[in-house]
Write a protein that binds this DNA or RNA. Sequence first.
DNA 1: TATACCATGTAACTTGTTACATGATTTG
DNA 2: CAAATCATGTAACAAGTTACATGGTATA
Lengths: 179, 179
Amino acid sequence: MELSATGRVILGMLAIRPQSGYEIKSLVDDSTRFFWAASYGQIYPELHRLADAGLIEGRSRPQGGRKRTVYRLTRGGRRELRAWLERPAEVLELRDEGLLQLFFSGARPEGARDVLEGKRALHVEKLERLREIEPAVKGAGDPFCHMVLRYGIAMSEFSIGWCEQAIDELSEQEKRRAA
Amino acid sequence: MELSATGRVILGMLAIRPQSGYEIKSLVDDSTRFFWAASYGQIYPELHRLADAGLIEGRSRPQGGRKRTVYRLTRGGRRELRAWLERPAEVLELRDEGLLQLFFSGARPEGARDVLEGKRALHVEKLERLREIEPAVKGAGDPFCHMVLRYGIAMSEFSIGWCEQAIDELSEQEKRRAA
DNA sequence: TATACCATGTAACTTGTTACATGATTTG
DNA sequence: CAAATCATGTAACAAGTTACATGGTATA
């Protein structure tokens, strides 16, 4: 994995269309952020590294008096991107604070219901944001981007349903204990 | 969020039972790792910080000539843990390289099927590991730990099914294009 | 007796976030 | 004219991984 994660995101974004660092960051924020984020502190230095490595090239394209560099893939960059797309993915990581709270709820069982409600709320929030961007993604006409978005939506719906079911389970257990 | 993520994991693990840093790491590796990992490089320094803050206390409990420190929660540590369990969770992050590859598959459409197969394989691998630990978790008798494991299993099954469906969709599209 | 495991720890490194600085342009 | 947005960048920090060092014990 000689190409960094951020490097791969940038190459992928530039394959969609040539753009500036600022535009890449905006696009990441309304798309891959949900499964792969990147900040300015990563993007700008990585753009320079990729340019030094000859995988991308930047051209000055000022907008009025506002300076601006638009990058595009070189042949080598496109080759590198395609090579990564051929390699099987390795990273599949989750950081879910709600799940951690549920895991430790033996230390505070009376709060388990709220923990599940909280987890549900996070998934609802995420689902809303995914639905917001759906028209734009669908309109862009890339079937793969849309597929990924649909996965995110389906996954969020699944998690919401699971939380609701788990809340019901807790309620039934409480009823049984009360009886 | 004054308490670090690793600190919360440690407090939670010590609420289950007093244990050494090594045991905490092992337990993390067979349980929370799937949604919250921690390495020795985080655990040992954090144990010292938590002890300095008075949230846990360590006692020397050597096994033969092998020195060993077992930590347990103090009253303050238990209070801190419960306080965190009361606060709504904020972190819900995913890093999914396969999804990133699918997102950028417009740059190499002929590989999309393999990308989905690769993503499916990662979920299958994860599911297998979750099923391996299920008997132990079920046997431990903590309903919340088991609930979390069931979530992981259900989620993996969902993802596997989604990948298979997406692969079928691609096949149908190919057929339609061929016709 | 070699390998695996128990046990603790640190140093170097990589990754990633946040906050800040700078300055132009557009919009309400 | 203030606020939002476009645009680029860096420094300080936080988080996390990996590799290494040390040394005891159990097991094949």
